[in-house]
Amino acid sequence: METQQQLDDFQARIDAGEKIEPKDWMPERYREQIIRMGSQHAHSEIVGMLPEGNWISRAPSLKRKLVLLAKVQDEAGHGLYLYSAIETLGVRRSELIDQYLYGNAKYSSIFNYPTLSYADVCVIGWLVDGAAIVNQTKLAHSSYGPYARANLRICKEESFHKKQGYEMVAKLAEGTPAQRKMVQSAVDRFWWPTLMMFGPNDSNSPNSAELLKWQVKLNTNDELRQHFVDRVVMEAEAVGLTLPDPDLKFNEETGHWEFGEIPWDEFWDVVKGNGVMNRERIKSRRKAHEDGAWVREAAQAYARKKNLSREKAS
């Protein structure tokens, strides 16, 4: 049973800006929230390999092939850091993976959209990684130590991702008519889904209050979204791309860009599994997992044999 005293002491530590480490006392609910949020983040990195991986074989130059491959490889690395951070709470990676492959655990809906052209992966680098950086930069100050540190590491690599994405977007935007058409189409399709990445509006976000109180996250969904929009509008303008929102306008008083109504119906459809690629993504991840079962078993069997012969030898 958690006593009020324990809860108060815990809150005092959080308020004083202390990091919570794996062996520290923590409310069960805090532990659950970290596992939920952190593993969702990890799954997103892994599923996120698929839409971009879709263009590795078709990248239009060797340089771009290498950059894309390196980027997707980084996502795998991020997944690994995050799973390791969450495993400090006494839950195994294999359980977490089972929860999203066969259970109800979620991953970011943005990865349920298809990448229809090479420009899509460039725009993903610019917008999706850009949005992820806004989130993760804040999460690097999260109250749970291992999760904060994983995010810090991730941020360093994400800024390279965003940079290469924006660089290529700029190149396409000033390229041939076909390249310009390709990149504008990608922006048109990814703009709203990217804004949805920050989650529902604050008034509609059930977990937010608790996560903020415990400083698992430090800003509300809407604050982060606004921060992102303010920055991206300038970036789009700089390369002459149009963001598909007629209501976008600068508010002199607030100093922020106001934007139109996010298509939340679409958001909930995709969350519920009805995005264009939801089924494919899970099918594809399950296949990799199931096809790899014999490999994992063999590695374990080999390790057991080696341990046994080592024991015999000593």
Binding site: I46, M49, L50, G53, A76, G79, L80, A288, D291, R296
Partner: peptide
């Protein structure tokens, strides 16, 4: 080799195979 990227038998191997492809 790069065809394995995102489809490896275990996360560590996804990294290693992508690394070799790179």
């Amino acid at each position: 080799m790069s065809e394995w990227c995102g489809h490896g038998p275990v996360l560590e191997e996804d990294l290693a195979l992508a690394n070799m492809a790179l």
